[in-house]
Design a protein around this nucleic acid. Sequence first.
DNA 1: CTGTTAGCGCATTCAA
DNA 2: TTGAATGCGCTAACAG
Lengths: 328, 328
Amino acid sequence: MATVSRVINGSSRVSEKTREKVLSAMRTLNYRPNSIAQSLASNRSNSVGILVPQVHGPVFASMLSEAEEELRNAGKFTIFATGLSDEIKEQEAIRFLISRNCDALIMHVDALTDEFIKEQMDDALPFLIMNRVVPGLEDKCISLDNERGGFEATRTLLEMGHRRIAYISGPLAWVDASARLEGHRRALAAYGQDFDDRLLVESNFKEFGGSEAMSKLLRRGRSFSAVVCANDEMAAGAMDAIRARGLSIPEDVSIVGFDNAPLSRYLYPKLTTVNYPIAEMGRMAARWVLRNVYKDSEAEIRHVFRPTLVPRGSAITAEGSRDDAPGK
Amino acid sequence: MATVSRVINGSSRVSEKTREKVLSAMRTLNYRPNSIAQSLASNRSNSVGILVPQVHGPVFASMLSEAEEELRNAGKFTIFATGLSDEIKEQEAIRFLISRNCDALIMHVDALTDEFIKEQMDDALPFLIMNRVVPGLEDKCISLDNERGGFEATRTLLEMGHRRIAYISGPLAWVDASARLEGHRRALAAYGQDFDDRLLVESNFKEFGGSEAMSKLLRRGRSFSAVVCANDEMAAGAMDAIRARGLSIPEDVSIVGFDNAPLSRYLYPKLTTVNYPIAEMGRMAARWVLRNVYKDSEAEIRHVFRPTLVPRGSAITAEGSRDDAPGK
DNA sequence: CTGTTAGCGCATTCAA
DNA sequence: TTGAATGCGCTAACAG
């Protein structure tokens, strides 16, 4: 019996002969190890928990499926739960996953405070934070360089000759939203442009929020020939609002999104946007776990990912644009 | 010790007094039951496996998250895996989930044959098939009335006065695709219209396939004023192809999709489509498991769901259309 | 109603 | 290199 355990886990030397005998017996008996019993005896559940705000949305779906595939290829189980960006639910979900003795936790949490993470989680189990940098826990975070993404979006428009560039932001209380805006400001500064408060609207990362924000911008009467939206969903809403005003995209207004979500290819015209390499990030998270928890990988871990611009049809050079920027 | 087990599981009578004592002790010791040990002893893992082709795509994401929420509210864990519509991978994934002693399996499989399901699965563990009807296992299937959906799509156009209606189908080897087409034919017949082979193209349910199919239709030179696409992705592609030909939507061609995927709202104009109530179906799947496996629910189980039309901007009455249907 | 006992199926000592 | 014994933390049958 102990020998069978040894050949299954390769934990100790077994002579080639008995090893063969065991394997063939396993085959004829159609034996399958009971992974629950393995877990109990070894104190390892071979399962990792993944907590996301929701499954919908390209970002989380990609992260989930890439991580799951990588883990499954290594024989690990993926248990998932959703936290709905709600502080209580996120805490509950964490407790839920811990109660299943997950060996590690990959979590994308919006509502949990840095303090909770640092104080409550630190000794509970190995964990990894996605898309967020918790000060002091940088080595447990995998994130996007949002500031750079914001910079790239605006820089692209500036290089196309645009000068008056509006910006529709996500909730500035969220670090990713404020970092993206920071990048926008840095790009403006780099090109000697003043930042104009009246070309900025804070919104909520949702489609309807984007259309409301764009309506507000248009009503302000401040002219602009291009707009950066801090995510693709808001860009979709903004496009609706621009058209509702009788303006054309990109002739009257160039628009750049952020995330490179699938929907960005379905918009008309297809959306120029900043790629968020979430699939690679999900895979990297899985590798971090395989390496640090299961000692089962030598993969180099990258903690900060770099966004890149994806040019499509929604942004054109200022010269190509009509000379009637909104509000002019 | 046994008493503690009893208060945790409520499996047997415990006096209110000792019950309180146990609970308070649990609190002061910060005791958490080890769910792995519970599983081993009770031969119940309290986890249900969900197998989907992929996480991407609105259909699977909704199904997954709705089912997970319902199960988590009942204290069950959700382990998921992807099968990628590949027969071998789907079989592997099933073995993988079984090896974790899932108490039940909810599976959305494309590639597995009916025979495999009937012969290999039947005694392994309780399971539920999504979006497919396996003859003889109707009580283990939750599906959409695709035929009715196809009927509704075409009927809507017929009632708008369209008579020459093209149809872009999914792979007819798949039952859902052929059922949708059946519905289309039945609607035509109901309105006294002949079915015209030259207005039918079989494609692959993908965006690019849709645009190729539409190009082919346009080249055939057979006139039509409206088209039904068997899913929204193909509709997106078809819209591209229609525009590439210099035609307008919906003025020259009305278009109706199928699924009511999120992308349908991002298209321009927003896509009139047939709703696929996948979220409810996911929830229903979870309830089926709670009821039939955990005896933890009295929910009425519905096995066949009914699609309904969602009117948006991409289909208008024939009178409102221009009088130059493609190919005329 | 409560405590005692014997496994659940394995990994991991320790001897041999 | 292999086998025998012990225990992982719990549930379920049994006896009291």
